[in-house]
């Protein structure tokens, strides 16, 4: 034990050791109870990045799904349809659905990681038990894992936007905001996805999550404008988070930006903050009992 063999017999804390570690800032301490967070969620994110090397092909394959939809529906069915009415007037069908798929790819990355992967780590690998035996708090774990999930969502969205660019489907400079908005969308889905996951008991329950995500993908105005629905259904669809994500993306890539977008963004801010706080409490309840 060469690095600091005197530590064990010494009272108190090694002076050098404290220098080696940045202490959580005063601000963090004031906002979050000390028991929930050590202000060190970045090390949880670091672990996720390191472990992702072992399933990099799964990560890469997740990018292709929305691309295939874009090719099949946009190029294929789009050839039959021609143009549809977008927020700025008639647009090519592919340009109409591409932002919908963009929002979906941000969602997919976030949801997959915050449900399937989190569930496995929570129930089987006991990764979070190991983390909470150290001086990390539940909120460090929640923020780190949500951070990783949103990173994956943002990665998919960025790659998808490049595909859109290559296919000439971006019509506005507002599209520069696509990546930050994708991060916001992914953050909201990751936080809520992880919160839901803390209630799941078996792998069958994970199927229910996918069963909920699939119709949301199909019916949240991804493939056609909302006015095809009767009023009642419109309201229902407008309650879904993906609808607001698609509105944001469609506005940015087609150049229809208005004050209403702040409302769509607020939906995700609430999901994100509520989700993270909720997950922290749930982890505390599940693992620190």
């Amino acid at each position: 034990m060469a690095v600091s063999s005197d530590r064990a017999v010494e009272h108190g804390v090694h002076p050098l050791r404290e220098k080696l570690r940045p202490q959580p800032g005063v601000l963090v301490l004031r906002i979050i109870p000390l028991q929930l967070s050590a202000g060190r969620s970045r090390v949880v994110l670091e672990r996720a990045l390191r472990s992702s090397k072992s399933f990099r092909w799964t990560i890469i394959s997740g990018f292709f799904e929305p691309v295939f939809y874009l090719l099949a529906m946009g190029a294929g069915i789009g050839a039959l349809i021609g143009t549809v009415d977008g927020p700025t007037g008639p647009v090519a069908y592919a340009a109409f659905i591409a932002p919908g798929l963009l929002a979906t790819s941000a969602m997919n990355g976030a949801i997959f990681d915050s449900t399937v992967n989190v569930f496995f780590k929570l129930k089987y690998a006991k990764t979070y038990d190991a983390m909470l035996a150290t001086s990390l708090g539940p909120m460090d774990v929640a923020l780190g894992e949500v951070g990783w999930a949103l990173g994956r969502g943002a990665l998919y969205a960025t790659a998808f936007e490049l595909v859109m660019l290559a296919m000439g489907l971006i019509e506005s400079w507002w599209a520069l905001l696509v990546v930050p908005v994708a991060i916001l969308i992914a953050l909201g889905f990751a936080a809520v996805g992880m919160a839901v996951t803390t209630y799941l008991k078996t792998f069958q329950h994970l199927d229910w999550v996918m069963t909920a995500v699939m119709p949301m993908f199909l019916f949240s105005t991804t493939f056609y404008p909302i006015d095809v629905y009767p009023r009642g259904v419109q309201i229902l669809v407008q309650c879904l988070p993906l609808y607001h994500g698609i509105e944001l993306m469609r506005g940015l890539t087609l150049g229809a930006v208005g004050i209403g977008m702040l409302g769509h963004a607020a939906y995700f801010v609430v999901m994100a903050i509520g989700g993270v706080l909720f997950v922290s409490r749930r982890l505390e309840k599940l693992l620190l009992t």
Binding site: R17, L20, V43, S54, T127, A130, M131, A133, S135
Partner: peptide, 30 residues
């Protein structure tokens, strides 16, 4: 504290050396 749980909960997505490295990072060391 150091804790050795009843059942090993090592990180199977990481190598042996990374397990030690990442766990030390949890404590906030450089």
């Amino acid at each position: 504290l150091g804790v050795v749980p009843q059942q090993d909960n090592l990180d199977e997505e990481l190598t042996v050396r990374e397990n030690l490295y990442v766990y030390a990072r949890y404590f906030g060391f450089s």
